[in-house]
Amino acid sequence: MGFKINWDALGIATSLACAIHCAVLPLLLTSLPIFGINIIENLPFEYLMIFLAFLIGAISLYHGYKKHHHRSGPFLMFGLGIALLLAKQTWHHLQVWFLVPAVISIVTAHFRNFQLCRRANHCHATDCNH
């Protein structure tokens, strides 16, 4: 049996890492600019994190959709979350109001995808670990 990646778990971890970055990092690492390092409100870094969340999430959800459950609900919830992350970048002064529902939406999409994979008739315990 080969190595398998649980894409939903990876997607949830990526979403939570993004939330931690956005919420906690400014509080803990405000001294980094003294050392010439700026990852707080660094637009390329922010868009890289959103792109990674999108890429991992899309792979995960597509796998679940194609091989297991054929339901679009997780895609819709995930799309809403990604749209809210992009809105956070557009209306930066409202970022907390966009970030919290974005992370909840993305994590819920991955969790729902995981549930649907588990419930699929052809899905056995080893098949759903992606």
Rank of each mutant, 00 (worst) to 15 (best):
M1N: 09
M1C: 05
G2I: 10
G2H: 11
K4Q: 07
I5F: 14
N6H: 13
N6G: 07
N6P: 02
D8F: 05
A9Q: 11
L10H: 08
G11I: 06
A13M: 00
A13W: 01
T14S: 05
S15E: 05
S15R: 05
S15G: 12
S15V: 04
L16A: 06
L16H: 09
A17N: 08
A17W: 07
A19L: 13
I20E: 07
I20V: 14
L25R: 09
L28F: 12
L29F: 15
T30F: 12
S31M: 05
S31V: 13
L32M: 10
P33Q: 08
I34P: 00
F35C: 03
F35M: 10
F35P: 00
I37R: 04
I37W: 12
N38Y: 04
I39D: 09
I39W: 14
I39R: 01
E41P: 00
N42H: 15
N42L: 12
N42A: 13
L43P: 02
L43D: 08
L43C: 00
P44Q: 10
P44E: 10
P44T: 11
F45W: 14
F45G: 13
F45Y: 15
E46H: 15
L48K: 01
L48V: 08
F51N: 01
F54H: 05
L55S: 14
I56W: 07
A58Y: 08
A58S: 11
I59G: 04
S60M: 06
S60F: 02
S60A: 15
Y62W: 14
Y62G: 08
H63R: 14
Y65R: 04
K66P: 08
K67R: 11
H69Q: 13
H69L: 11
R71P: 01
G73L: 13
G73C: 03
G73E: 10
P74M: 15
F75A: 09
F75K: 05
F75L: 10
M77F: 09
L80S: 14
L80D: 04
G81V: 07
A83Y: 03
A83H: 00
L84H: 12
L84G: 12
L84D: 11
L85A: 10
L86H: 05
L86F: 12
K88I: 01
T90E: 01
T90K: 03
H93P: 00
H93T: 10
V96D: 06
F98M: 01
L99Y: 05
L99S: 07
P101Y: 09
A102G: 06
V103F: 08
V103A: 14
V103T: 15
S105T: 04
T108F: 09
T108P: 03
T108E: 11
T108Q: 09
T108A: 15
A109C: 03
R112N: 07
N113E: 05
N113I: 01
Q115P: 02
L116C: 06
L116K: 04
C117S: 06
C117L: 03
C117R: 15
R118I: 04
R119C: 02
N121Y: 11
N121W: 07
H122I: 02
H122T: 07
C123L: 00
C123V: 02
C123F: 00
C123K: 00
C123H: 04
H124I: 08
A125G: 06
D127H: 12
D127F: 06
D127I: 07
C128I: 04
C128Q: 13
N129D: 14
